[in-house]
Amino acid sequence: MKYLISGLALSLALGGPALAQDKYVVAVDGTFAPHAMPTMDGGLEGFNIDLINVIGERLGAEIEIVATQYSGILPGLQAGTYDFVIAPTTITPERAEAYYFSEGYLNTDFQFLVKAGGPEITALEQLEGQVIAVNKGSAYDSWARELADEIGWTVESYGTATDAVQAVVSGRAFATVAGNTVIAWAAKQNPAVQLSYLHSTGLVWGMPFRKGDDELREKIEGVIECLKTDGTIAELHVKWFDSEPAEDSAAVTPRPGWGEPDLPGYVEDDHEPGCA
């Protein structure tokens, strides 16, 4: 499914004329609520949809959003199908070896979701012997599988985050694990499930680019930094997650240089973040 979003040539917070008249093809998992999800009229809405729309407006660029399963997004980027990825993607050292990343724009912790009325989970060890549903190809998939022998759980992968939640509702899985924003949204929308154990990661979500696309990464990251400093990302945080971002979180704190510091692909630079 493709959704065409045309950005206007706005000066807005950039304080001048649009930077360029371009078109970018970007990829998102269209079932990853509240970051991207279908609307009644066949479009898409969510935090990341709003975010890329604003980026397109600030650049005066045309954005073509391709909604697809997450497991095919990074291979599609590598193959040149997409210019960059707007699906929430956890920046890990392994991924940063293979792709360029923008600086993080949201913190992401891992949170479990269980059937409503289930036992309180306060430690991973309590999930020994249980089936854990995950979104195939996601960071939660690889993390859960790496811990499978240590914890003693069984991991089952599903094509979408929604399918993983339904596995819990139907009893095929004891729990599902995903980013805390996604899990909070799922619990808010479905009384059959409830929030459970929160695992702090120290990780952030960023936007992946192909290695070598330095100019494009810097262009997009420059707008992300502007949206942090002018409060736009904080406003989207309240709109979609019902909470203000933490004071020092990635949603409001521009990083120095290009990319996420201390990870592969990071480039030191003394540019001043803002809406110049």
Rank of each mutant, 00 (worst) to 15 (best):
Ala144Gly: 01
Gly259Arg: 04
Glu268Met: 12
Val252Cys: 08
Tyr24Asp: 00
Pro273Lys: 08
Ala251Lys: 04
Glu64Thr: 10
Val182Cys: 11
Val155Lys: 08
Ala61Tyr: 04
Leu10Ser: 15
Ser170Leu: 14
Leu106Thr: 04
Thr108Ala: 08
Ser200Trp: 08
Lys115Gly: 13
Asp29Pro: 00
Val204Pro: 01
Ser71Met: 12
Ile151Arg: 10
Gly7Gln: 09
Asp262Leu: 09
Thr160Val: 10
Leu263Pro: 09
Thr162Asn: 13
Pro264Phe: 04
Gly179Cys: 09
Ala9Gln: 14
Glu57Gln: 13
Gly257Met: 03
Leu51Asn: 00
Pro208Ile: 07
Ile183Asn: 03
Pro38Cys: 03
Ala167Met: 07
Ile233Val: 13
Gln130Asn: 09
Ala139Gly: 06
Thr39Arg: 11
Thr122Leu: 12
Ala175Tyr: 12
Thr31Tyr: 12
Ala251Met: 06
Glu97Ala: 12
Leu74Ile: 05
Glu235Cys: 07
Gly30Arg: 03
Leu198Thr: 14
Arg172Lys: 15
Leu216Val: 06
Pro273Leu: 04
Phe47Lys: 00
Pro34Lys: 01
Pro261Ala: 06
Gln189Met: 15
Val204Met: 01
Phe209Gly: 02
Trp240Lys: 00
Ile91His: 02
Glu221Leu: 08
Thr232Lys: 12
Leu124Val: 03
Gly259Lys: 05
Ala87Met: 01
Glu97Tyr: 04
Ala96Gln: 03
Ala133Ser: 15
Asp230Leu: 10
Thr176Asp: 10
Asp149Phe: 12
Gly15Phe: 00
Ile132Val: 15
Ala20Pro: 03
Val85Leu: 01
Asp269Val: 01
Trp258Pro: 00
Ala184Gln: 14
Pro17Asp: 14
Val85Cys: 03
Asp163Phe: 06
Ile151Lys: 10
Thr162His: 13
Pro191Val: 11
Thr162Trp: 13
Asn135Pro: 00
Phe101Cys: 05
Ala167Tyr: 08
Gly212Gln: 09
Asp270Gln: 13
Gln166Tyr: 14
Asp41Gly: 00
Phe209Asp: 01
His35Tyr: 14
Tyr99Val: 02
Ala18Gly: 07
Gly171Thr: 12
Ile121Asp: 05
Tyr100His: 11
Ile132Lys: 08
Leu113Lys: 03
Ser249Pro: 11
Asp248Ser: 07
Ala144Pro: 04
Pro208Gln: 03
Asn53Cys: 02
Val25Glu: 01
Gly137Phe: 11
Ser157Glu: 15
Ile233Leu: 15
Gly274Trp: 09
Glu94Gln: 14
Pro17Cys: 11
Gln130Asp: 05
Ile91Glu: 01
Glu120Met: 11
Ala139Trp: 08
Thr39Met: 06
Gln126Met: 10
Trp143Tyr: 14
Met207Val: 09
Leu195Gly: 12
Thr122Arg: 14
Ala187Asp: 09
Pro191Arg: 12
His199Cys: 04
Tyr70His: 12
Asp270Lys: 14
Ala250Cys: 07
Leu44Met: 06
Leu106Ile: 07
Tyr3Asp: 10
Leu77Gly: 09
Pro88Asp: 04
Val223Phe: 05
His35Pro: 00
Val28Ala: 09
Ala164Trp: 06
Ser138Lys: 02
Glu268Asn: 11
Leu198Trp: 09
Tyr266Trp: 15
Trp258Phe: 10
Gly80Glu: 03
Pro208Lys: 07
Asn48Gln: 02
Arg217Phe: 04
Asn53Thr: 13
Lys23Pro: 00
Thr232Trp: 04
Leu77Asp: 02
Trp143Lys: 11
Asp270Tyr: 08
Trp185Asp: 15
